[in-house]
Design a protein around this nucleic acid. Sequence first.
DNA 1: AGTGGGATCTGT
DNA 2: CAGATCCCACTA
Length: 199
Amino acid sequence: MKTKNTAIEQSWFVRPSTAVAPDLIGCTLVRQFSDGEIKRGTIVEVEAYGPEDPACHAYRKQTPRNAAMFMAGGYSYVYFIYGMYHCLNIVTDRAGVGSAVLIRALEMENNPPPITKAIQRLAAGPGKLCRHLNIDRTLNQIQLDLGQPLWIEPRSQQFKTALENQNKALVQTTRIGLSQGIDLPWRWYLKGSGAISKL
DNA sequence: AGTGGGATCTGT
DNA sequence: CAGATCCCACTA
């Protein structure tokens, strides 16, 4: 039996980022453009950032840049970095708690198949996936819900079953590109995925 | 008002 | 491993 595709509801994101992050692996990120065109990708790599975490943009205090992280779970936090790239985060936890999950890699859907190696690398990295999906700061602080420019759909039953059978597995390890908080094991990825940012 | 560093990526 | 390239938080 096939279940209807709907967006994950906001309350699901109102948990610590370290709880939401691994649960996001296998979910689908949906990007809807203003002309109605839709692109979908499966989330295969994430990192959690939270309070008491020196690497977190919200570690010190609230500023205009990190304000989105203090919103309630279920909103977007998009920031610009290195003069060239944007990065997409999913805000987590209650309003007032500065935390989010960085989406680091997607496996893009392709119609029609097959998925080539090149397509697998299109969204293999936080900067690359934003470039591919035209995500910039105009999409900061938007609610993730059906009909918005971005939303997230839950794991398919097929994916859940594969996890239970251990045909698929998550790997938990340390985060990438940081100068602080480098030992916290808050990065998760889907084992064996060809779309991981650093293989 | 000036400045240094940053949750990146690409090519050498 | 250097370079591209811009925003913003911090210092003064």
